[in-house]
């Protein structure tokens, strides 16, 4: 008889109950995580109509603070950059060199290149399409 390797009846029941409690706890936790995992459908618009191409003459620089984005016309080519700071998401503001973030002081030049941190990444370039009727559409997505 080798008694030491065998689990006593009392210990077995104790262990079983603990395992069951643990499992029920995990089950409850998984339910809670599932409950919190719901992500509502996003309502944030990702397409913006910018109006007629003609309202962006060559050499112009237009800030649309509602998007927020800046739209350039460089020799007939329409460029757009997001004005959301790549550091922590504040909306950046115009200054002499280009743009500066009011929250943590990042600086960007007119083409979105980082001049001064803490931001690491350049401003996001946004896609602009010219539709058939010469209207512009901006995509932030």
């Amino acid at each position: 008889m080798n008694k030491t390797t065998r689990l006593s009846r009392r210990d077995f029941i104790k262990l079983s109950t603990n395992v069951l409690f643990g499992l029920s706890g995990l089950l409850g936790l998984s339910g809670l995580i599932r409950y919190f995992s719901y992500l509502p459908a996003t309502e944030t618009p990702t397409e913006f109509d910018l109006g007629d191409v003609a309202s962006y003459p060559i050499g112009s620089r237009t800030v649309r603070s509602d998007i927020p984005a800046v739209i350039y016309n460089r020799q007939g080519e329409i460029l757009a950059y997001s004005l959301v700071c790549t550091h922590l998401g504040c909306t950046i503001e115009n200054n002499d060199n280009g743009f500066a973030c009011p929250c943590h002081g990042s600086q960007f030049d007119r083409d979105g290149v980082v001049l001064e941190g803490p931001a690491q990444k350049p401003l996001k370039r946004l896609r602009v399409e010219v539709l058939e009727n010469n209207m512009l559409r901006l995509y932030t997505g």
Binding site: H87, L88, C103, H104, G105, G117, P118
Partner: peptide, 10 residues
């Protein structure tokens, strides 16, 4: 914390 954030990695 805001001041610290000006120095680098968020």
């Amino acid at each position: 914390v805001q001041q610290l954030l000006k120095f680098g990695d968020p």
